[in-house]
């Protein structure tokens, strides 16, 4: 071996750890989606969008996994942790028990969970105050309804969805104490998230009873609700992502739940080294929830309505208005 080659070899050997360290400095995020799957047009897809945006902005690849049954939650989290993926984001409240267990097994890895709370030193819990966003769209619905009657169509009948309904009713009553609210849940099983036909029927029956505006918190089922509103020449309200564009002029507004922002944020924090464990509550104040105003619904929102919504938003953010959280005591103060 010539001297020069020997030197080159030494340089290569010395340089190797340096380059691998540079690679290791990049985070390797991973996502475990909930049963709904990556492309559910709502909640999980919001996370996917956030992760895609993160990838686009930073060029950092991420891995993800769609579970098929409950026992795969733990398995998937553990698989990612074992391969050194960090941070690991678990989507949906159903993952709480699995995250708690796996986070204990891998104390050096950072976990995040959306929509639930896990008290571990290496877990960030991201929850949204859906009741606050729902309150504001409730105010708008109440003001837009000339008949004084509004409706709500939920997906699966679980506390989380009752929290949407409860916030909505509080907002509606805040704007008009005499407003009449019709409430329906689509079903009691997971199928209730993807039944647009039944959603449409429920909305239709509410319109027949005189409702002018119907808000849905029903995932894929809501597509039918918004369609029924457009067909009946009434108004619908979208949820989770901005659904104003689905039927321009027929969707009053959308209650935004910014899971995409939350996803991107937690990955960015991990990258920058500012990631912190603990509870992260995203409400109106933190821009975690909100309502959508764009060219599709500009004509529907009068200046008075906008002012009222902005005032409610500001008051909730400031704490002057306390929106009751259904899940705090499984009870809604107003019916």
């Amino acid at each position: 071996m010539s001297k020069r080659m020997f030197l080159a070899a030494i340089i290569v050997i010395l340089a190797t750890p340096v380059t691998s360290m540079a690679v290791a400095a990049d985070i390797q995020p991973a996502i475990v989606y909930d049963l709904g799957g990556k492309f559910d047009k709502s909640f999980n897809e919001g996370v996917f969008d956030g992760a895609s945006a993160f990838k686009k902005n930073t060029g950092i690849e991420y891995r993800d996994f769609e579970i098929q049954n409950d026992s795969q939650r733990e398995q998937a989290l553990r698989n990612f942790a074992r391969r050194g993926n960090d941070p690991i984001l678990a989507v949906g409240f159903s993952q709480a028990a699995a995250v708690e267990k796996v986070a204990k097994e891998f104390p050096t890895i950072h976990f995040a969970i959306i929509d639930s709370m896990v008290n571990q030193p290496n877990v960030q819990s991201i929850v949204f105050k859906e009741q606050e966003g729902s309150f504001v769209v409730g105010v708008l619905a109440s003001m837009a309804a000339k008949s004084g009657k509004i409706g709500f169509v939920g997906g699966m009948d679980i506390p989380l969805i009752r929290r949407f309904a409860c916030g909505y009713i509080q907002g509606a009553r805040y704007a008009n104490a005499n407003v009449e609210v019709f409430q329906n849940m689509t079903g009691t099983t997971g199928a209730a998230w993807s039944d647009p036909v039944k959603g449409g029927e429920l909305a239709k029956s509410q319109f027949d009873r005189g409702a002018d505006v119907v808000y849905h918190a029903a995932g894929g089922t809501g597509i039918g609700v918004l369609q029924a509103a457009a067909d009946a020449n009434k108004l619908g309200i979208g949820v989770d992502s901005n659904q104003n564009h689905l039927h321009p002029g027929k969707v009053l507004t959308s209650m935004l739940k910014r899971v995409d922002v939350a996803t991107q944020q937690t990955f960015m924090e991990a990258r920058a080294g500012t990631w912190k464990p603990g509870l992260k509550v995203l409400g109106l104040k933190e821009n975690g929830v909100g309502w959508a105003l764009d060219e599709n619904n500009k004509a529907l929102i009068t200046p008075t309505m906008k002012a009222a919504a902005d005032k409610a938003t500001a008051d909730i953010a400031a704490g002057t208005i306390q929106v009751h959280d259904y899940m705090a005591d499984n009870h809604c103060p107003t019916k």
Binding site: F93, P159, D329
Partner: peptide, 24 residues
């Protein structure tokens, strides 16, 4: 099967749930 599913949701959402818990 459907009746079972609805019954269990009712029980878990309204009766057997731990108060303050996210998950039914």
């Amino acid at each position: 099967n459907f009746i079972a599913s609805a019954t269990m949701v009712y029980l878990l959402v309204n009766v057997m749930i731990q108060p303050g818990q996210m998950q039914p």
